[in-house]
């Protein structure tokens, strides 16, 4: 699971208000190189929940130096875009857990696939 996925995921247990962002407990992580596409990253910047992204990048120690907030200059700075690309697309959480911020329910991540299935009483 990449951080781009983590940034989109929320817990949708019945009764939970926002369920976002999910906490990360790391057991194993991995890095895989990926082609850098500056246009895609620029498009994603508008959609990322930046604070959640920074927190997650810190948890996975993939941040390097990420700026505190998204600015216009950033979109032209390839150096920064590359760092965002690395944290967003190249770092994978292979084994671990995602934690719902409100209920503390844990969603396991096995072999890079988060299991977001709900129990019957959570729907």
């Amino acid at each position: 699971m990449r951080l781009i996925t983590h940034n989109m995921l929320k817990s949708n247990i019945k009764g939970v208000e926002s369920g976002y962002p999910l906490g990360i407990e790391v057991v194993k992580m991995e890095e895989q190189e990926l082609e850098f596409n500056p246009d895609f990253i620029r498009n994603m910047l508008a959609k990322l929940e930046w604070d959640a992204f920074r927190a997650a990048a810190t948890a996975l120690e993939a941040g390097g130096e990420l700026p505190e907030e998204v600015t216009e200059e950033m979109k032209g700075d390839e150096e920064v875009l590359r760092r965002v690309h690395h944290a967003l697309m190249e770092v994978h959480l292979v084994e671990g857990e995602l934690v719902c911020p409100e209920t503390g329910r844990k969603f396991p991540v096995r072999q890079g696939v988060p299991n977001m299935l709900l129990h019957e009483d959570e729907i």
Binding site: M1, L34, P114, M116, L117
Partner: peptide, 9 residues
């Protein structure tokens, strides 16, 4: 390379 997976109903 460019895909991610998630198990959900």
């Amino acid at each position: 390379d460019f895909g991610d997976l998630c198990q959900h109903d």
